[in-house]
């Protein structure tokens, strides 16, 4: 999948989430799909493409998260760097493994965002939410991300198969 297509699909996911939450009247437990997208690009794309995608996803998600500007983008950026480091140990090949990575990543994003609010704004953000709400949000994000990862990996594989066929046809045996 090309970088542009990845960015467009990611933006569609982020914007759709805000509208679907509104349409179905979901208030408290909301999945943070931006985190799932950042984990996906960090694990499944090369570093430059992943960084470019994260730059755009973080900016857009930050405009949609409702809190003061910059802190959610900060959390997502740190998650990208962490996931890129973990990616060096191995690339998750299944949607389930990617979704499992999303659970700690979601919790850490919230923790980084709240911590940075405490540092930069000198406010006391709701840290107790990291115990009460964040674990449920993390599990919910992973559950919602699972089918999205499954579809994305299927698309990736079909693109790879098509590309390898094209290469075989052009350079195949004579």
């Amino acid at each position: 999948m090309s970088a542009v297509l990845t960015i467009l699909a990611g933006l569609l996911v982020i914007v759709s989430e805000t509208v679907l939450l509104r349409v179905f009247g979901v208030l408290v437990h909301v999945p943070e799909l931006a985190v799932a997208l950042v984990v996906y690009v960090a694990c499944r794309r090369n570093f430059a493409v992943g960084a470019a995608c994260t730059l755009i996803f973080a900016a857009v998600a930050d405009l949609c998260w409702g809190g003061p500007r910059g802190y959610y983008a900060f959390g997502l950026t740190l998650i990208f760097f962490l996931a890129s480091l973990l990616h060096l140990w191995g690339t998750p090949r299944r949607a389930v493994s990617l979704a499992l990575w999303v659970i700690p990543a979601t919790w850490l994003t919230d923790a980084f965002a709240l911590l940075s609010i405490a540092i930069f704004r000198r406010e006391s953000p709701p840290f107790n939410a990291l115990v009460t709400i964040a674990p449920i949000t993390a599990l919910l994000t992973a559950a919602v991300a699972l089918p999205i990862f499954w579809i994305a990996l299927r698309v990736e594989r079909s693109v790879e198969v098509r590309r390898s066929r094209a290469v075989t046809l052009s350079t195949g045996p004579r």
Partner: peptide, 15 residues
């Protein structure tokens, strides 16, 4: 018209 809401559980904002 309300068209969207925030995407985290920590803030209570609608658009």
């Amino acid at each position: 018209h309300v068209i969207a809401k925030d995407i985290t559980p920590y803030f209570r904002v609608i658009r």
